[in-house]
Design a binder for these strands. Structure first.
Lengths: 380, 380
DNA sequence: AACTTTTAGTCCATAATCTGTACTTATCCT
DNA sequence: AGGATAAGTACAGATTATGGACTAAAAGTT
């Protein structure tokens, strides 16, 4: 709730953002079409587009004939040639980075396998800094200037600081000076949700369920992630499934994570790939684990639907490859439990962005910021 | 997400709103203080304040000395003398209406007891129309012009239409032409949450839990109510407490409502007042019912806290008079279950607005709109 | 082939609004 | 009484959007 007044310069900044956002949301437009949609005059739009062209945010991409007669307009599209966003991720067993241009095209991508459990933050961050430098240079070779970055971490983030990442064994780590552009830090599940929004087929509001070692969720509302008062919202993994169930590492009992976390699903198996293999061969213990997890997910998601009212539920992370075995029990659970309360339960979908969701979402967050505040980030 | 461009008139409209909102949030200000806080110049603020004075939204209320020396400034405060908001409520056993001025002072208030269960919408709405007319006239006698209204109903609202109100026995009722000013309709729990925000001691984000026959909740985030994709968010009453518990009227099993709804709490007793009396006399069955309800609330709220991350939890409706008996088991449940996950569980508080919360919140919603868009609603 | 219609985009004078400096007003301090 | 300090106002100037006139480019019409 900005309580700052609007001045001439912020009026123009806002109008630049409106034009850019319109192109971003609805594809290439002629200046005339932009004027129509934004309610601004053709003159004003021309002037705004001129600034955006100069800043390299948009390009003119040939003539389009609007109706049958009249002078054809010139389509103005987002430019993939000048500015770009850097996405970074620290996870349990890898470091990842990608550079994405304004058209949401992934231009460069790197993943370094690593065992980051109980690691020294300084060492890992130094390695990540190197990776960022390298990938920024590769982007520069393609003519792209990275103007912002975001970092996804598997833990709780508050005030730009990593408060705790149990699986990394990190506490209160300040991430600064990693790159020489503005850097955002956010939770893996939140950014994976944005990844699904920006690089998947989603259009509207949805709840992204991120199955990793823990289970997180990111609720996307009106193009942004709902974070709650302290940024701790979306902890689906600790929603209560059985009030007197087995103890959970969080101190609670019968949390979803106990039934559907990676450890519960894998049992003795070493990896999700392996689990999928034995599921395909019809292994009864594995099938039963999936049924149990699906049932628990159905219960927790029922509570989540009642509280959050998402339009769609997207299963991601390790739940994505397991979707064929989870989908049935989860949607059955939702259907019988939600029953009379609403027309139909939210649609259940599988994530399309795979394990890249979080890095991609990190880059997407930056692109979102560029489009929301072009004047600030493009130096207009 | 407005995609409309900013023009000169919308710039001014925004600045009027910024000034008014600053006074509303932080009390009377001199023009100089407003300039400081909004980032606008003194000149601009003077001009904006002049318009707001003329529209009757603010008044000058005497001199204030800022520092030690210098000319004293003139405090500009919200005016309670010209414009007002109408709050309306249809509930199971009464109709209510109130007129509130911009200073949040309740100027007129009426409650008509009535048995609205399984009633004819047309009849009740006609009665409400009469009540609205009457109270508007009484406000006019005090010099107040009602410029907007909102209606609280115990049911699901979608697209300005009452989809279903099970306890009234209403379905798909269109409420139009009830009054001759713009009318909003919303769910009782959502508006009660706003009532707590506007007329209670709350400042920041909180989850308002509304105990009535059903149990609803309204999450207040950044001054507004979080509604979800279809406006169905906050159905705390059907969060799963025991996955295989007793069936609920919603079709699910073991919902919170089964354990902590009015029916479960009252047992054979006729009213909450009566329940309080027997609790005070130490009736063991009643105490046990409260403990059970408190335990169930603790479980459901744990899930809610993990998903929504509210700063505070406010118990309202019938939970308010029962707070002395519920507070202990609820906060114990939250504390042990949330344990390691966050610093401390959200504070647990009792609602101060009593059974008026929803009507008051309805009026508060209108005032919120006046303050957010003064140019539109005051005709500037 | 020339003329008309239609739509896109630009030019330029005008209008709306905010800014900044100078000025007036009101109070306290010495 | 004179000076210092802060609030509020006046007015010229700056910024940005508007609106109508103009140019540009295409298709239809005669």
């Amino acid at each position: 709730m900005s309580s700052r007044g609007v001045r001439h310069d912020s009026m123009r900044a806002r109008n630049l953002a409106v034009v850019l956002a319109t192109i971003h949301r609805s594809g290439p437009h002629t200046r005339a079409a932009l004027a129509e949609r934004t309610g601004l005059t053709k003159t004003t739009v021309s002037s705004l587009v001129a600034d955006l062209l100069e800043a390299g945010a948009v390009t003119e991409t040939g003539a389009v004939r609007a109706g049958e007669r009249g002078r054809p307009g010139v389509a103005v599209s987002l430019s993939g040639h000048r500015v770009a966003a850097l996405g970074l991720e620290i996870n349990i067993d890898y470091l990842a980075a990608c550079v994405v241009d304004l058209t949401r095209t992934v231009r460069v991508r790197h993943i370094i396998p690593a065992d980051n459990r109980n690691s020294d933050p300084a060492v890992i961050l130094e390695r990540l800094r190197g990776l960022a430098k390298e990938i920024t240079a590769e982007a520069a070779a393609e003519g792209l200037r990275v103007i912002g970055a975001a970092l996804a971490v598997p833990g709780l983030v508050e005030g730009g600081m990593l408060r705790s990442a149990p699986h990394l064994g990190w506490r209160d780590v300040r991430v600064a000076d990693l790159v020489d552009v503005p850097l955002e830090i956010d939770n893996e599940a939140n950014l994976a949700a944005l990844g699904e929004l920006w690089f998947g087929p989603r259009e509207s509001d949805f709840l992204y369920v991120s199955g990793e070692i823990g289970i997180g969720a990111g609720l996307v509302v009106q193009g942004g992630v709902f974070r709650g008062t302290y940024g701790l919202a979306g902890e689906l993994g600790h929603v209560v499934v059985v009030p007197d169930g087995p103890g959970c590492r969080c101190g609670g009992r019968g949390c979803l994570e106990v039934y559907a976390g990676q450890d519960a699903l894998l049992g003795d198996l070493g990896s999700v790939t392996e689990l999928v293999r034995v599921l395909e061969s019809g292994d009864e213990a594995a099938l039963e684990a999936c049924r149990r997890a699906g049932h628990a997910l159905g219960v927790a998601l029922t509570s989540a639907v009642h509280l959050l009212d998402p339009g769609t539920i997207v299963l991601g992370g390790i739940f994505a490859p397991l979707f064929p075995w989870l989908s049935e029990p989860v949607s059955a659970g939702l259907e019988t439990r939600l029953g009379q309360m609403r027309g139909a339960p939210p649609a259940l979908a599988v994530s399309s962005t795979g394990s890249d969701a979080a890095v991609l979402g990190a880059a997407g967050l930056v692109i979102q910021q560029i489009i929301a505040e072009p004047a600030k980030l493009l130096g207009l």
